[in-house]
Design a protein around this nucleic acid. Structure first.
Lengths: 197, 197
DNA sequence: AAATAAAACTAACAATCGTTAGTTTAGCAA
DNA sequence: TTGCTAAACTAACGATTGTTAGTTTTATTT
């Protein structure tokens, strides 16, 4: 039993290493431009050896994207459940994005740019999650407007503006890792909610 | 002379049609995932026929990206030259992004997602323009902070936040074309500068 | 109507793609 | 040491890639 666990762990680790490296390459060049030979070279092995650990290139992509999408979905569902006021909910959403970005910036590049290369089944699943996420976001903002916690601007514009900044965090954060996560959160909340003038 | 002009015009139009169609496909799937046969099929011709109008796939990409990047560079340089106050300069930047987006949303997808597939020379040229653009943006915001026209938050965060929204406009605008351009501008300026709460 | 040029075509190329089959090496368990 | 298995390897496959060469069709000019 111990032996079994140990072996399984080794396999899983190697698989995770491959997926992690793949995410880095996908971030740099995009899914389609990264070949299995590129990935293998980055891992210091031959392309065929990758297939001892993963089933296909497509499986790597879906593993990266779906797990992240589920993380956002679960996070949003938790926020929706709470009885926080609108501002607090928005702060929690910003928190969620910053947390996920700090933990997996490379994977987020694939989620943002390569989701369309998912195959049928996972593509549908992903698009469903994305639509639901945006709908929840809009609902929170809409309610905020009704309760006069938020200015009565066009809801789509407010949601799009905020969300596009949060979704693009992965592009920007790695460059400025000197900024402490808590400071980032605070300033981000201020800028996104209260504006800059 | 008239004949020469007419012929040249026809060639140029066909070339422009191809580049326009390519931008649409690049937006949907990304540069690397679009084959010359895909593009040819979308144009209703065979792949080899494309080469009567363009020199290479790479040429299509650089034509799309470089011309747009130059448009942003020129627009920003004009704004920097003026004696407007900070708020007005920021409004002009927002204007610039909305104008370019309305005129060429498809091309902006390539600029945002496929610039790394430019070859050496154009890649360097593009990166130079992007860095200068961001530096000019930061300089405007920094001056605004010094003149107390803008809140003293972290400058990188303010610039990044605004710029990432503007850069992602292309993803969002086509869906909501019912929104009038002038209304979009007004609300966008309000949301980005004054915040939503 | 004849001549010319533009723009399509067919066919094929060398390179590269994701992936499979079969084999060898390395590390651990007995 | 022997046996077993994970994880690497070599070699190759059929498909697809961007592109070229050479030819035919279409449209325009004289």
């Amino acid at each position: 039993m111990k032996a079994y666990r140990k072996q399984l762990m080794r396999v899983e680790n190697r698989r995770e290493e491959i997926i992690k490296e793949a995410a880095i390459l996908f971030k740099e060049r995009g899914y389609s431009a990264v070949t299995m030979r590129d990935l293998a070279k980055a891992m210091g092995i031959k392309a065929a050896s990758l297939y001892n650990h993963i089933q296909s290139k497509q499986e790597i992509l879906s593993t990266i994207i779906i797990s992240l999408a589920e993380e956002f979905t679960n996070g949003m569902n938790e926020i929706v459940k709470t009885r926080l006021d609108t501002i607090q909910k928005l702060e929690r959403i910003i928190d969620l994005h910053i947390d996920v970005t700090l933990r997996n910036a490379d994977g987020l590049a694939a989620l943002n740019n390569d989701w369309m290369h998912l195959e049928e089944k996972n593509l549908q699943y992903f698009e469903r999650m994305r639509i639901d996420y945006e709908e929840n976001f809009k609902k929170i903002v809409r309610q905020g407007v009704e309760l006069k916690e938020i200015k009565p601007y066009n809801i789509e514009i407010m949601v799009f503006s905020t969300l596009s900044t949060l979704r693009t965090l992965y592009l920007w954060y790695p460059k400025k890792e000197k900024i402490d996560a808590e400071i980032l959160k605070k300033d981000m909340i201020s800028v996104l909610l209260k504006g800059i003038i």
